[in-house]
Design a binder for these strands. Sequence first.
DNA 1: CTTTGCATTAACAATTATGTTAAACAATTG
DNA 2: CAATTGTTTAACATAATTGTTAATGCAAAG
Lengths: 208, 208
Amino acid sequence: MDNQERQNKEQEILEAAEQEFLTKGYDGARTTSIAKAAGVTHAMLHYYFRTKEQLFERIVDEKFRVMSRSTLAAFGDPSLPMVERVRCGVINHFDFVSRNPLLPRFIINEIVSRPERYGVLHARIGAIIDNVYRGLQADIDAAAERGEMERVDAKMLFISIMSLNIFTFIAYPFMKPLMGELMADDAKFLEARKAENIETIMRRIKKQ
Amino acid sequence: MDNQERQNKEQEILEAAEQEFLTKGYDGARTTSIAKAAGVTHAMLHYYFRTKEQLFERIVDEKFRVMSRSTLAAFGDPSLPMVERVRCGVINHFDFVSRNPLLPRFIINEIVSRPERYGVLHARIGAIIDNVYRGLQADIDAAAERGEMERVDAKMLFISIMSLNIFTFIAYPFMKPLMGELMADDAKFLEARKAENIETIMRRIKKQ
DNA sequence: CTTTGCATTAACAATTATGTTAAACAATTG
DNA sequence: CAATTGTTTAACATAATTGTTAATGCAAAG
């Protein structure tokens, strides 16, 4: 068996594991079911990844990376005027969550149910965020000074953006059957929801 | 043993079960650990509730009821002027979630991981909501006509309110370590967050 | 006081998941 | 082609968890 094939098997296990863990969580996931979905015996899964725990770590690591990278990238281009920069941030963040709809719920559940493990990670991300914020808040203050927008707290604004964008996807399966025609067409609803979130945030920062 | 005592035991099991299921979810919960927390042997738990499944049902049922009652009640007093009615709705909903911080995550996870079971429930709630909405949208339109507020979609507004209020609590354990001083004092942060959510929603409906 | 019925316990049964191992197999290398 | 290394399988071991049961206790009712 050549390298190519081996990597394929590893990859297939990882993909099946991602699907299983993201939809069912650590406790609900079954290694046998992951192995089956990947088309390997469950002994092979253990051969490649030793334990369920270690396989899970791999998924968590990757997902955390994707999540934090994209979340930070959402606070894009500092060369844009502040108001446009925020609009752009909301759009980018919405689109990211839209491409990874299962991710936020997974990460939140993970952290809620095993807070002890993420101390290091938190410290690291915390430092990065702190840095970004200081700059962002300064830019907001400057723009407010120039009368371009309302003076707002950068962190609060950030939380609002995350709330509006993420909740849409977290609660989708819950809301969909409750909302009738509004949600009949997924694509249409998401488009409308995106516009609504942008509008809500833009009004929040609009000078009045 | 008198009636009082028996009901107490049942009650203690239910309370322990609620705690366990809400924090760990169905898969993560252990009946032995529930029994231990309730101070009974695990055979007693089975004696009272037969299976884990049935015990879980009891908790889900009650929690669903609490959740839907409070969510609807948040769209309070139709005698108030529309703008005040919305403000009041946001405040009531925030306070409700604040008193039941684990509830939204529990319900969302439940529904995501077992969608098939909630068809009936959904139909019922859907009908109620539909009803409330029709009235609410009419009231909003009328208020907009009178120039008291912006014309907005009632369902979209509702989703925004839920998003802002619920996400705060769902993501709290995740954000807390990331936000530094802002969240050092829980009570203070929640107060600030509540004010921020009210402001965000009020600006959304403000005539401009 | 005895009978009846519920409450309680401890021991046990069954199932399910994770993880291991030894042997078979395949591929690569010298 | 022999030796070595890594891969695969099937069978097994272990542990955890849910659920059952038969025996015992206990309280109230007749």
